[in-house]
Design a protein around this nucleic acid. Structure first.
Length: 592
RNA sequence: GGCCCUAUAGUUCAAGGGAUAGAACGGAAGUUUCCUAAACUUCAGAUACAGGUUCGAGUCCUGUUGGGGCUACCA
């Protein structure tokens, strides 16, 4: 059991014994002691003064004495300015280290029996993935791992926006200008090829609008009546009617996009348990809307469109079906949610979607509740912040979109340059090197994104490459590689890591203390859906270890028992680095 | 206009209402006969502004200012 809990419990009993009243739980504040003070855990005594009716100093001393008596793990205490600092005995920490070494899935929560569904990625099929999607994908993946680490059963799902007018634009543009080009014939990745024709459509559309305006038409009318747009709209009608030619083209081009996406996902190390397509769920959404209409929770406008009145909830009225009976964005989301619940009966459903859609999810939950689905309360919108450039938001119109594939290429290239410059890999096979560059480049990218609190807007400057020094993925990877190198040498010399009970250095106890927090970190990052806390843990541990590495020798230690004991410590540090970084989807290399 | 989010060193990020606000990059100065210098050590540098609540506020509340988002019969 973790020390904070032990101390908190003891504190409650001690306060009751000393002052004769049971303190409310929120008055019992135990935290880790700040680095600059002597001690491991700190009791904040201010909240207890009301009960003790004595000075902070006196209260702290009295409690300190009692706790010292009742908990053998505590070696000494000190009261400074109203803070009671407790120092654990070094044998306590050494036992912790042994516990860690002996616990198979150290840090992981026990099975909860709960199913957590996580939707992330959710791409459009007419644009390649960009930096925003990278944050989405990495967050979704990492949160999935963190949920698993908390003992939940996880179902990772993707929702592909594969229908709507935008798809028709790409199709039409390809028919007109594509001359039957394919990813194979052009050598262009499928999603990029389709994206190119989407852009091509937009260019033509703008030209036509301009011509019409020059011919004397009002701009608003021109925007509506440009021939190419009208052609796309009639194509959408054909799609909805099930026109075979249109459907075949749609399937063919979507297939290209999926092939392209698969490559990108694979490179990011991302998989899904199930992929949903809007084209398959929007019909159920329509049925739900009709049911809501029948039940009187929705209403029909004179023009035939169907709405929900949310003004009593402080929101507007929301359109659910157009007058012509076609569905809108939220219609399919209703259908998707219900079919997922029917299929998996999730206890929690996390949607990893940008904060620009906060309103959408607020409405979605309200609508589901109005339709009588009580599990609407189990929906959590993990609303992450945008990735911005120094000049603001990425805009495809201004060509500032940072492409996911390009960015990964660049990261790997930088890893290659940095690695080759160091000259440490000369005896490594070319395949081994390539593999390493990928691990390092992606490690840098993933860590860069995930170390930031998901809810916050973050900044990316394409002109400055992502760092490989300091608080970065490669820093932690490097720390790991160093430890593994020592462990390999130790193994080849026949050394065996083992606990001997030799006195440990302050630095070593600090490392153990950090590692002792791991279970709590996993729990908290799960509670907050925040990989950033995991990243901070990894960094703190790596930094602490690097200082230790610099000061203390392991392989050259003459005292064999001490040497082997240190090997045990190293092994556990490496293990937790690998475990925690694994929760971020980052691989650690044996050497670099 | 209405609603929501946000503001911490030059820059990018930390800090469960608790002690002297931590790191990293960048800047200055150092460390390599010794397990990987992608490391380590030292120095300089910050809570937008004004009130309030509290024994105690970067953190909670109110206002001001700056930044972002939403407010589509797009998805």
């Amino acid at each position: 059991m973790n020390a904070e809990i032990i101390i908190t419990e003891a504190l409650g009993k001690v306060v009751e014994k000393l002052y004769g009243s049971v303190p409310a739980p929120e008055l019992l504040q135990v935290q880790t002691t700040r680095k600059e003070f002597e001690g491991d855990y700190t009791v904040v005594v201010f909240p207890l003064l009301r009960i003790s009716r004595k000075s902070p100093e006196q209260t702290g001393s009295e409690i300190g004495r009692e706790i010292l008596d009742s908990l053998p793990e505590i070696e000494s205490f000190q009261v400074i300015k109203g803070f009671l600092n407790l120092k654990m005995s070094s044998s306590y920490w050494m036992n912790r280290l042994q516990d860690i070494a002996l616990t198979k899935n150290y840090g992981m929560g026990s099975p909860s029996g709960r199913t957590v569904m996580i939707e992330f990625s959710s791409p459009n099929t007419n644009k390649p993935l960009h930096l925003g999607h990278i944050r989405n994908n990495l967050l979704g993946w990492s949160v999935s791992r963190i949920m698993e680490a908390n003992g939940h059963k996880v179902v990772k799902v993707n929702l592909v926006n594969d229908r709507g007018i935008h798809i028709c634009k790409s199709m039409l543009s390809w028919l007109r200008y594509g001359q039957n080009v394919t990813p194979e014939s052009s050598g262009i990745k499928g999603d990029h090829l389709v994206g190119d024709y989407y852009v091509r459509f937009d260019k033509q559309y703008k030209e036509e609008v301009k011509e019409l305006v020059n011919g004397g038409m009002e701009e608003e009318q021109a925007l509506r009546e440009a021939p190419i747009l009208q052609e796309a709209q009639s194509m959408l009608v054909k799609w909805e009617q099930g026109d075979e030619q249109v459907l075949n083209l749609w399937k063919k081009m979507n297939g290209w996009v999926y092939q392209g996406f698969d490559i990108t996902y694979k490179r990011m190390g991302i998989t899904f348990d199930k992929i949903y397509y809007e084209s398959e769920t929007y019909l159920l959404g329509k049925e739900l809307v009709m049911k809501g209409l029948k039940d009187g929770v929705f209403f029909r406008d004179p023009d035939g469109s169907i709405w929900c009145d949310l003004t009593s909830e402080g929101l507007d009225r929301k359109l659910l079906l157009r007058a012509d009976g076609t569905s809108v964005y939220i219609t399919q989301d209703l259908g998707t949610a219900v079919s997922r619940y029917q299929e998996y009966g999730f206890d929690t459903h996390v949607y990893v979607v940008g904060n620009e859609q906060n309103y959408h999810f607020q409405v979605l939950k309200l609508l589901l509740k109005k339709l009588g689905f009580s599990w609407a309360d189990d929906i959590i919108h993990l609303s992450y912040g945008m990735v911005e450039l120094p000049e603001g938001r990425m805009k495809s119109r201004e060509g500032t979109v940072v492409d996911a594939d390009d960015l990964m290429d660049n990261m790997i290239e930088t890893a290659r340059e940095t690695s080759l410059e160091s000259g440490k890999l000369e005896d490594m096979s070319p395949e081994g090197q390539e593999h390493l560059f990928e691990i390092l480049g992606l490690g840098a990218l993933k860590y860069f994104i995930l170390k930031v609190d998901p809810r916050k807007t973050m900044l990316f400057d394409p002109r400055e490459s992502i760092d490989f020094n300091g608080n970065t993925g490669p820093f932690i990877q490097y720390t790991f590689a160093r430890i593994r190198s020592i462990l390999r040498k130790a193994a080849s010399r026949g050394y065996h890591s083992r606990m001997y009970g030799r006195p440990m250095l302050e630095k070593e106890l600090r490392l153990i203390k950090l590692m002792a927090n791991y279970p709590q970190i996993i729990e908290e990052s799960g509670r907050d859906y925040s990989p950033a806390q995991i990243a901070n843990f990894s960094f703190d541990l790596a930094r602490e270890f690097n200082q230790y590495y610099h000061e203390v020798t392991v392989l050259h230690e003459e005292d064999r028992e001490l040497r082997d004991q240190r090997l045990l410590l190293l092994k556990q540090v490496a293990r937790l680095l690998e475990s925690s970084m694994g929760l971020l989807g980052i691989t650690l290399p044996e050497r670099m």
